[in-house]
């Protein structure tokens, strides 16, 4: 019989790569603990969005959750730092920085009673529109969505002179369908899984920002496990969730073809505008630093990134 049960929720839909890998992970943990550690999964947002999930973890109805960065960022603001627009240029950079930041994130979550088990990925997000958007001025005319509770992307858009419409992820599809928003942001695979691609026929072919999330368990409940189980869970998680990251990247690159097969155009943005978009990053950071995330975590992130870029330069 299950001795240690973890009830875990997520807004990721059942059948998506995220829940599939989680089920694999859960199955292996159960097997390795001879059924003593078990998981009950509530997918597809049936327990509510990230905020409701966090509230339910606080009172013990849930013991874990697969959170998105925007959702859990309100609890641990420093976790937002990797979501700064135009921060990363490649997944290699992401991996290097993520590894370097893990101890900081882990500590910040621990301070809030949360155990960081694994990082998850949505991938690089692109701006997707109902109508073709290739210049900045066209983008400004469009009704743009921003994830609710994500001060970084909202500040970035405001720096561009855009007032976005903040909505929770579950409400985006309806808003696209009714024309309440015209431009949204998602990874290529995400746009397919959430059906957004049925409306967004034009995708600007430039990665806007990196989107990600994490798997958290209740720290107190996790601490009640015997030490051997704790390290076993972390090890199993490392194995399955690095497979998940590989899955995600593969799905994202496969999705490009799927989207094109469905008549979606990848629009090349104006090179001058791209430069402008990149330059807005610094200004945005200056605006939100200290409220959206701490200056220390930003410094650490930039140091990790510069180190990686210098080494990569040397290797060349």
């Amino acid at each position: 019989r299950t001795k240690y049960l973890f009830k875990v929720a997520t807004i990721a839909p059942e059948g998506s790569i995220w829940t599939k890998r989680f089920h694999d992970f859960a199955a292996e943990v159960e097997e390795k603990s001879n059924g003593e550690v078990g998981f009950k999964v509530y997918p597809g947002g049936i327990m509510g969005d990230d905020r409701a999930m966090y509230r339910k973890m606080r009172i013990g109805q849930l013991h874990g959750g697969g959170f998105t960065m925007t959702g859990i960022g309100t609890v641990v603001p420093d976790f937002r730092v990797m979501g700064i627009p135009f921060l990363f240029r490649s997944y290699e950079e992401v991996d290097h920085v993520m590894e370097g930041l893990w101890p900081f994130f882990s500590k910040a979550f621990a301070a809030k009673g949360l155990e960081l088990i694994a990082m998850t990925e949505v991938g690089f997000v692109y701006s997707m529109s109902i109508s073709p958007v290739s210049t900045l001025s066209e983008l400004k005319k469009s009704k743009i969505w921003a994830p609710e509770g994500d001060p970084v992307s909202i500040a970035y858009l405001e720096t561009l002179g855009i007032t976005p419409l903040p909505l929770g992820i579950p409400d985006v599809l309806t808003s696209l369908q009714t024309g309440m928003v015209e431009t949204v942001f998602n990874s290529l695979y995400g746009a397919i899984v959430l059906q957004w691609f049925t409306k967004t026929k034009y995708i600007s072919d430039i990665p806007f920002a990196y989107a990600y999330g994490c798997l958290l368990l209740d720290r107190k409940r996790f601490a009640r496990l015997p030490e051997s189980y704790r390290s076993m869970i972390k090890e199993t998680a490392r194995k399955h969730f690095s497979l998940l990251i590989t899955d995600t990247r593969k799905s994202n690159s496969d999705s490009r073809q799927v989207l094109q097969d469905n008549g979606i155009s990848m629009v090349l943005p104006d090179p001058g505008d791209v430069e402008d978009l990149r330059n807005m990053r610094e200004e945005t950071v200056q605006r939100v630093q200290g409220t959206a995330f701490s200056p220390q975590i930003y410094k650490t992130t930039m140091k990790l990134l510069d180190d990686y870029r210098n080494q990569a330069y040397k290797r060349k």
């Binding site: 905020r51 409701a52 339910k56 009172i59 013990g60 909505l167 929770g168």
Partner: peptide, 19 residues
């Protein structure tokens, strides 16, 4: 044995319903 404030947590989700 779930804290009864979960009832209000659920009710508070009404504030996330734009419809």
């Amino acid at each position: 044995d779930i804290d009864i404030s979960v009832v209000i947590i659920e009710m508070s989700r009404l504030a996330d319903t734009p419809l």
